[in-house]
Design a protein around this nucleic acid. Structure first.
Lengths: 178, 178, 178, 178
DNA sequence: CATGAATGAGATTTCATTCAT
DNA sequence: AATGAATGAAATCTCATTCAT
């Protein structure tokens, strides 16, 4: 519900209705609406971190690492679409609250993983040297995550197929080669 | 403020504080909070539509049309970053309200422009034939707009430079060619 | 907990926490929060009444009766500090509820004991004739009971010593005699 | 209402009803229920402090200073009975909250005024040397303030008369002199 | 004798909006 | 064009209590 309507627009009453209980009863399980959000985001980021760590620990080349990171990201969207969408929509302003400081911490960690891999690729002459690394990172990151806003699990394309198409675009370009 | 904190989270009082007046005084200028949002979005979409129309009317080739659309989009972000961010964040659920039905109408128009150009490019063998057109459209559209969330006017890169970098990525790919 | 934080501010959950059980479990032992309060107050007043009765039955002179009543009161504070504090803090508004009507009944009984003794003392020329008996009663009663708010059992002075000091103050005055 | 029914038992709805407005309207004037309590207590303590300061600055002898402090206290009860009653009832547990830390600060200041005067009196042989100063201070302080629980402005005795009677009791004692 | 999960009433607070001045 | 004081609906949260297990 947070993903579909936004955190603020989702009332605890609506959540309780959907859960088949009264609004007050939710407070037996969570001590605030914010705690629900927190649990969703923290769980998501924890899982994502461990997936990324596994990829980085595999010792792949830069191109293969990018491919694996992209694929894992689309898989994460497939598994926890709502969490990703919430993260996308709410994290920019949540970040300013102390309670959600870990959002910034996570983001920095992920940024390092992506940037490092791109740099490694440029050094190994696997990626073009004339591109702004930081800008490329942002394009790649955004395109991957923003997919959470339209991706529907069980739809026409699975996460691996979407990752393949996306990687093809970003690695080879959409222009026909001379 | 809508862009930074979200429409729901931005109270009329906060807006009034920032405007140096009391909450009630805003109602002399707008008849509701929703009207402010409406004015922001409608103005933005009007302007964007006319820019896109100008591009499409210029009779360019498919690749040049894509380049022009992307460049105009980044320019729009440069001019009205907040409006774009609001559009990105709020339009999915605003769309369901009759008052904001024009969001869907606009989106359809834009979609047609992008899809049509991509198709034209494939037919003209300017773009690769093995791409999922619809998926490619989504990738391109989202990456362009989501830039509103990190772009800062007056920063290191102007909109044209960002467009150039982005187009280079998406057209040629980031992989080094053999 | 009722004494420290007030009856209203003490939640059933806090009581249960302190008792090492869950809130619902308390209801095996008491049928309501109010019952706990009731038991505390009724027990306290019962005991106090029997102590006062014993003093009054002893047939002492007015001065000795006052001394004994004061001493018994401080002893009661020593034994049941919390109950006295609760009585002080909550009885004024509890009194209005039918269930706690016995608070008024008790108070009247105690008042009669004190007033009667003071009057007897004035008649016997043991106490000054120029005093407002009712005002004196209130001063004495309040000062004794309010001691529950600062008295700590096991502190520097025991209840008998405090009673002695207080009686010296109220009987002889604090001014040096010429 | 806080004085009569206790802070917790007084709902904002009841306050609003008494004020002839809706509950939400109170929040135009106060930002929380706690703020109302805060304003009552802070105002009361401020005024009391300035009255006590005036007495102490007058350079009276110890007995006259005690007489003046007692009289000012009863006058304060006469003027702001409710504030005094709230202070009596709520300050012990409010003190633990940072926001109400000034309660402890005030109390220490007042304590110093009373204790200092009593010590001065003992040194000047105006007050008996055989009494525990600290205990005497508590008796005097409590008796004065607890009067707020039964005093009714406009009743039989004005504040000066009550102060006179009380001072007679505590200075000369209630026992007839031999 | 205690738990775990609820209920339901009501508490405080928020907030867009109104309106006389 | 703005203020100051409300309204009223609804939001989040609290809490005594219930009850099957």
């Amino acid at each position: 519900m947070f993903a579909a309507q936004g955190y603020r627009a989702t009332t605890v009453r609506k959540i309780a209705d959907a859960a088949g209980m009264l609004a007050g009863s939710l407070y037996y399980h969570f001590d605030s609406k914010e705690s629900m959000l927190d649990e969703i985001l923290a769980t998501f980021l924890d899982e994502l971190r461990s997936r990324y760590d596994a990829v980085l620990a595999a010792g792949l080349g830069p191109r293969e690492t990018i491919e694996a990171l992209v694929t894992e990201s689309f898989r994460e969207i497939d598994r926890h679409r709502a969490a990703v969408a919430i993260y996308q929509k709410e994290s920019p302003h949540l970040r300013t609250q102390p309670r959600f400081g870990y959002l910034t911490a996570s983001q920095r960690k992920f940024e390092k993983a992506w940037l490092g891999t791109l740099e490694r690729g440029v050094a190994a002459k696997v990626f073009r040297a004339d591109l702004d690394i930081r800008l490329t990172y942002r394009f790649v990151r955004d395109t991957v995550w923003v997919a959470a806003s339209w991706y529907r699990p069980g739809g026409q394309h699975g996460p691996e197929e979407i990752a393949r198409q996306y990687l093809s675009t970003v690695l080879e370009g959409i222009a026909v080669r001379d």
